[in-house]
Design a protein around this nucleic acid. Structure first.
Length: 355
DNA sequence: AACTCGGGGTA
DNA sequence: TACCCAGAGTT
C-alpha cells in the first residue's frame, strides 16, 4: 500500500475542489449551485454514462427527460419505448436495467431514489461505481467512486505501476478513493476527479503543466505519468459474418425480434443469420420463417465493431418470396413506420440503404 | 478471474 | 490501428 499521510490528502482535496469551482464542465444533469441536484436526473445520466463519453450522452439525456420528465413517467413507460429512445447508444442492457430500476424505485421506495449505497446496490444495473456516484452527487453522501478517470488519476498521483485490472490493485484504488472522499462536498469531489481525468489527466499527453495537482503527483515526479495506468492487454475481437436478408411484400419489409438475452437483446432486425454459410440461407429462412425465397441478390457489405467481435454484415435482397409467415415470427412494416421498433446501428444502416 | 455487452472519440 | 470511455452482471 502506498504511504499517504492524512495531512497531504486534505490538501489534495482542497486544491482539487478549488480547481473544480473554476473549471467544472457544464452538463445538463449537473445542478447549478445552490440548486439541489435532481436525483432522477443523476440516476438517468449515470446509467447512460457507463462506458460512454459525456459528449455522446447529452442528446440522449435531453430526449429522455423530455419524454419521461419524472421517474414515474419512466416507470409506466413501455420497455420498447425506452429501448427506442436508447437506440444508437449501445449496451442496451443498461436501458432495460434503468427501466426496471425506475419501476423498483416507484414500487419499493415510493418513487424516491434511495440515498444509501447499500440500497442503491440492490437496484438492477447499479454496481459499486454507480451507487457511489448517485449517493455522493445526488445526496452528498461521502461515498467513493472508481471509474476509468479516477483509476487514471489515482494511479498517477500514487505511482501505482501494477496492472489496474488486477483485483488487489483495484481494491487498493477503492481504498484510496475512500480515504480521499471528503465528508462535505463529496459529490463535487468525485466529479472533480472525473473532470480532471477527462480534461487534464488524460490518457495520452496529460496537461501536467496546467494541472492543479502537479506538485502532488508521484508519477510526474518520476516522469512515468504517460505509462500509467498499466493495463492487462485484451484479447482481439473474433471475426464473424452476419447475413441480413431483406424480405419485401408490396411496400412492407419483414422484421424479427432478437431473443431476450445476448447481443442486442429484445431489439428488432431484418431477419439475420449468424455464423452460417450463405448457401444455407434459403433453408434457414424456410425453417425459421416459413417462407420460400426464389432468389437472393447480394447488396452492400460492411463491417461493424463490438467489444468482442468484428462483424461483417452482408445484406441480401430476397425476391420471389412465397409462403405464409410462421405465426409470431415477425412483423411486416413500411420503412417509414419503424418509430416503435428499436434497431441497433447495423440494422439502421441496412434500412437506410433501402430508402 | 474471465467473459459478455455497443458504439463513438481520439492519437 | 489501438486504446479509452462516469461499468455491471454472469459464469
Amino acid at each position: 500500500m502506498t504511504d499517504c499521510p492524512p495531512r497531504l490528502e486534505k490538501k489534495l482535496v482542497t486544491r482539487l475542489l478549488a480547481w473544480y469551482d473554476q473549471h467544472a464542465r457544464v452538463m445538463p444533469w449537473r445542478a447549478i449551485r445552490p440548486q439541489a441536484p435532481n436525483p432522477y436526473h443523476v440516476l438517468l445520466s449515470e446509467a447512460m454514462l457507463q462506458q460512454t463519453q459525456v459528449a455522446t450522452v447529452i442528446d440522449y439525456f435531453n430526449r429522455f427527460t423530455e419524454a419521461f420528465p419524472t421517474i414515474d413517467d419512466l416507470a409506466v413507460a413501455d420497455e420498447q419505448q425506452v429501448l427506442k429512445l436508447w437506440e444508437g447508444l449501445g449496451y442496451y442492457r443498461r436501458a432495460r436495467n434503468l427501466h426496471a430500476c425506475a419501476r423498483q424505485i416507484v414500487s419499493e421506495h415510493d418513487g424516491v431514489v434511495p440515498n444509501t449505497v447499500e440500497q442503491l446496490l440492490k437496484l438492477p444495473g447499479i454496481g459499486r461505481y454507480t451507487a457511489g456516484a448517485i449517493a455522493s452527487i445526488a445526496y452528498d453522501v461521502p461515498a467513493p467512486i472508481l471509474d476509468g478517470n479516477v483509476v487514471r488519476v489515482l494511479s498517477r498521483w500514487f505511482a501505482i505501476t501494477d496492472s489496474t485490472d488486477e483485483k488487489p490493485v483495484k481494491e487498493q484504488l477503492w481504498a484510496l478513493a475512500d480515504r480521499l472522499v471528503p465528508d462535505k462536498r463529496a459529490g463535487d469531489f468525485n466529479q472533480a476527479m472525473m473532470d480532471l481525468g477527462a480534461m487534464i489527466c488524460t490518457p495520452k499527453s496529460p496537461a501536467c503543466l496546467t494541472c492543479p495537482m502537479n506538485k502532488h503527483c508521484q508519477a510526474r515526479e518520476q516522469g512515468i505519468e504517460e505509462t500509467l495506468p498499466k493495463r492487462t492487454p485484451k484479447n482481439k475481437p473474433t471475426k464473424v459474418t452476419h447475413h441480413v436478408v431483406s424480405i419485401q411484400r408490396k411496400d412492407q419489409f419483414l422484421f424479427t425480434q432478437r431473443p431476450a438475452d445476448g447481443l442486442w437483446s429484445n431489439m428488432w432486425q431484418m431477419p439475420t443469420f449468424e455464423t452460417v454459410s450463405e448457401k444455407v440461407l434459403p433453408d434457414q429462412i424456410k425453417e425459421q420463417l416459413g417462407l420460400q425465397v426464389g432468389k437472393l441478390k447480394q447488396c452492400q457489405s460492411f463491417k461493424h465493431q463490438t467489444t468482442h467481435r468484428t462483424i461483417t454484415f452482408t445484406h441480401w435482397q430476397a425476391s420471389n418470396v412465397t409462403g405464409r409467415l410462421r405465426k409470431n415470427a415477425g412483423l411486416w412494416r413500411r420503412l417509414d413506420q419503424l418509430g416503435d421498433l428499436p434497431l441497433a446501428k447495423p440494422q439502421l444502416k441496412v434500412v437506410a440503404s433501402l430508402q
